[in-house]
Write a protein that binds this DNA or RNA. Sequence first.
DNA 1: ATTAAAAAGGATAAAAAGATCTTTTAGTCT
DNA 2: AGACTAAAAGATCTTTTTATCCTTTTTAAT
Lengths: 143, 143
Amino acid sequence: MFSKSCEYGLRAAIFIAQQTTQNNKVSLSTISEEINSPQAFTAKILQQLTRNDIVKSIKGPYGGFTIEEDKMETKLSEVVSVLDGDSIYTGCGLGLKQCDANSPCPLHFKFIEIRDNLRDMLESTSLKSIANDMNLESTILKR
Amino acid sequence: MFSKSCEYGLRAAIFIAQQTTQNNKVSLSTISEEINSPQAFTAKILQQLTRNDIVKSIKGPYGGFTIEEDKMETKLSEVVSVLDGDSIYTGCGLGLKQCDANSPCPLHFKFIEIRDNLRDMLESTSLKSIANDMNLESTILKR
DNA sequence: ATTAAAAAGGATAAAAAGATCTTTTAGTCT
DNA sequence: AGACTAAAAGATCTTTTTATCCTTTTTAAT
């Protein structure tokens, strides 16, 4: 479904968001331990999320990553879009460029339903809401 | 969503199925033209589909690819499974191995709905039914 | 039998994704 | 100021995916 980058990126963003609700900032090493991802690779992904203004990085001792209050409203779709592009929830299932309701591929009408569900889910779910859910019931981000 | 191999493979299988309903067998070169895919690469994919007994290949002059009658019932999920594995419609959206209802990732319950829709669609749609649909209304397999 | 068409198989190449390492920059603390 | 810490940036390496090429095998038609 998503690339490895995107899986790690979502896990990282969610972890940082959840820690942010507890007023903690978290270091790269903590993040990669807690989400069980390769540290150096995760650093690259966090750089992208930082450049795209989704997470905030703080350099120096006691630095780390956090998410600013207004950015807690970031939707999962934005994270996915930065890391994988939006074709997963906008593109044709068979990889055609010209596929739409007017000239559909043979799967178009079956696919569009799934795509749109995915899109709705990603576009309506914020980091904040997931973080809040996590504070209520225990979920996993490793293994 | 799917790998390139899988996109080409689905398009090829659908094209062959549709031609099979018209009692035509089709050569590799025709297939790659009609679905707009790289020929040599498509050959490799068709080999996989042949080995997995989804399409039938006929060697020699006037040979080509066709689908045997009972194999027209093949579901899209089987094609996907051969080319990409089944993790796209069985795995965790965040890439976790141990994610299930008992120890869910934070997206589990939102994701499972989409995954299951995808799964149902792929498992309930046969090559035959798509081929028949194509004979009724025009759809595209190129571009 | 010979020829020609077509798929199969093997080897290789190029590009992208995944992952690591090193150097630089920015910041904190004493 | 100097020592230290942590992320950013850049360079590099590895693996996987995508893609091509070339040879071999099969087989139908003449």
